[in-house]
């Protein structure tokens, strides 16, 4: 069953300063199956976040369609929870208040949603922090909470927008391993945007490599890496290194082309 289908997505902006038309997304099509982890990878400024925002319903595509679980996307909705780069937690709600937010919006009863909230907090390793406020958490913990908040509503797709980009390297590794563990346990459908090749390869089942602006799908790379995954086993796995090298090559080629185009 496919959870997410993107067909011939195009997005054109009008630049606020110059008034020029900027093509952010040229022509992007791909799909994500249920229970699959797909990363979108590309050079910075290639519009990968725009793809995510379109799926989330924050941005309207210029043309093309996005459908989730068979329904065409027309605006933000609880079937597509977003984990933001800057976590976007509600500062005025406790950790528990943040986790149960989506459940409250669904109209779930207090006892039930709190039980569910606690379950997901313990899944991401935040038990005991229910009464804290987001500003009292470390960066890594905030992002765990961001993940728990989305997973608790059991969306059709979880959208993650470079969630670990502003987190220090060691914590990032831990979070990536935890995310993999959670994914292997629960099998949510994940759409993950990143510019970190290692991260993409380590986490994903498939990687959608985008070209530079205006972006289009350069190649969809299958990651052949057994699960459960840990960093210790992954770095030694020949499949991991080969895939990283392959993706690296794709991006480097794209860059070379981009420079050539610039010179023209």
């Amino acid at each position: 069953m496919t959870a997410l289908v993107i067909e011939h997505l195009e997005k054109t902006y009008t630049d606020a300063y110059t008034g020029d038309e900027v093509v952010a997304i040229g022509d992007v099509s791909f799909s994500v199956s249920e229970g699959e982890f797909v990363s979108v990878l590309g050079p910075s400024g290639c519009g990968k976040t725009t793809v995510l925002n379109t799926v989330a319903g924050f941005v309207r595509p210029t043309s093309g369609t996005v459908s989730v679980a068979g329904n065409q996307v027309s605006g933000p909705g609880p079937d597509r929870g977003v984990v933001f780069q800057n976590h976007a937690l509600f500062p005025w709600k406790t950790v528990l208040g943040n986790v149960v937010f989506g459940l409250r919006m669904k109209g779930m009863g207090r006892a039930e949603r709190e039980a569910r909230g606690r379950e997901y907090l313990s899944l991401v390793g935040l038990e005991g922090f229910e009464r804290r406020y987001p500003h009292e958490l470390s960066g890594g913990m905030r992002q765990r909470l961001g993940v728990a908040r989305v997973l608790a509503t059991e969306p059709a797709v979880m959208l993650m927008d470079e969630p670990f980009a502003s987190i220090d390297a060691q914590t990032r590794r831990r979070l990536q391993e935890d995310l993999t563990r959670i994914f292997e346990e629960r099998r949510p459908t994940v759409f993950f945007v990143t510019h970190d090749i290692d991260e993409a390869v380590f986490l994903s089942d498939r990687i959608v490599v985008l070209s530079g602006r205006p972006s289009s799908v350069r190649e969809i790379v299958e990651v052949d890496l057994p699960r459960p995954r840990t960093w210790a086993s992954a770095v030694d796995h020949p499949g991991f290194r080969a895939t990283v090298a392959h993706v690296n090559g794709l991006l480097a080629e794209g860059e070379a082309e981009g420079t050539a185009a610039d010179v023209e």
Binding site: A16, Y17, N86, P91, H135, S166
Partner: peptide, 22 residues
């Protein structure tokens, strides 16, 4: 301080200043 995102908010200050160019 607390809720100020590290990255400039999309759609906040920048585009508005751009639009008010005239």
């Amino acid at each position: 301080g607390g809720n100020a995102p590290a990255v400039p908010r999309p759609g906040a200050a920048v585009p508005r200043r751009g639009r008010t160019g005239s």
